[in-house]
Design a protein around this nucleic acid. Structure first.
Lengths: 205, 205
DNA sequence: CAATGTGAACGTGTTCACAGCA
DNA sequence: TGCTGTGAACACGTTCACATTG
């Protein structure tokens, strides 16, 4: 069973929309209604879901609670995910203080920096540790995700270090397109790149 | 001449890689070399560029300075882009203080919030203004991009307001999939969604 | 001779349309 | 009757392969 990557990228959007519908008190939703919310075609939603199973009932639609449970299970969202953060400059501190991760089951359990200026300081409720501690922290605290918030020049070497220490998932905020071995899952958060592709469409409007 | 959107999304990556090559002193690059940097096939790079013109020389490759100028022009990066920010909570303040925008020609020239608690306070070098000022600020300060950093529940209505006031490009940090009319260019920055699609691949590794 | 530019071939993702079921 | 699930048709994006050119 091989699922297209684009489909996986859309599943979290379904989770979010279904969660909202649930909060609004809905119990059942059709692919047409869900498509309306997400500006997608009903066929695409049905096809996406069909890669994983048959979750709906003909004539009725999808039971929201059931579908949510299934999708959370498929995405691996039923467990807690522990991440470490590298780089506690302005950006890194903002990430630690971001309140959006915890409610979704993502927690930052360790923070690292290479600069003596930051090591030993407190950010949020974390004490910043030296890079040398990374290896032990990853195994001791069962960290599985690395969040990279260092300057562009350091990003590749930090990512190499994470990978050497067994990290398979990397959320990269540095403005670079890093090189990683196959099997490592990387997501880039890069507002400048987003803006630079936006201006193409704005430039003569 | 119709350019696929995926191609436009890749152009900023070319700009960034070429800029780095230039800093390293290179003057010419082949599609093969550039592909190595970006983990892309040479054919894709050549095809992408061919949508916009013939920038290379057979047997030599691409002149970096020339190609950079062309790409910057294509993307509309030769001018300054002025943005306004809505929402000066923790996230909004971090965005205003982010130093990555200015060097790329994006400046935040006005900040708004609906809460009396924030209005009149200073963030970076901006004084936070009430939402009522939005309309005038957009025309007076020639703002063309809106950056949304409000809580999820307010995001749709803020975006509606931006669109009503002539904004065509929106960088949305709120964790929602907003509904916008055709012709509005939206980019979502959403680390939670990124993590939630990552865990699919991590969950049994 | 090396590397571009590009139609043609291929593969992947989306949409259609309808059989099947509640 | 209403809506799902899904093969088949289609559209879109990527890769190939080679003619072309400095």
């Amino acid at each position: 069973m091989d699922v297209p990557e684009v489909v996986v990228l859309r599943l979290p959007l379904y989770v979010r929309a279904l969660t909202q519908l649930q909060r609004e008190g809905a119990e059942v939703v059709s692919s047409h209604q869900l498509g309306g919310r997400l500006q997608m075609t009903p066929a695409q939603i049905r096809k996406d879901l069909s890669y994983f199973g048959r979750f709906g009932k003909q004539g009725r639609g999808y039971n929201i609670e059931f579908l949510l449970d299934e999708l959370r299970d498929i995405l691996g969202l039923t467990r807690e995910w522990r991440a470490c953060l590298i780089g506690v400059g302005r950006l890194g501190r903002a990430i630690i203080n971001y309140t959006g991760f915890a409610p979704e089951g993502f927690s930052i359990v360790a923070a690292f920096d290479s600069s003596q200026r930051h090591i030993g300081t407190t950010v949020g409720d974390l004490t910043v540790r030296p890079m040398e501690d990374l290896s032990h922290a990853i195994s001791d605290q069962r960290v599985t995700i690395g969040i990279v918030a260092v300057p562009a020049v350091q990003a590749q070497s930090v990512i190499d270090t994470l990978v050497e220490n067994g990290i398979h998932g990397i959320l990269n905020y540095a403005p670079v397109a890093p090189h990683v071995p196959m099997g490592i899952v990387m997501r880039n958060i890069d507002p400048v790149i987003s803006l630079q592709s936006m201006t193409f469409y704005l430039k003569d409007a």
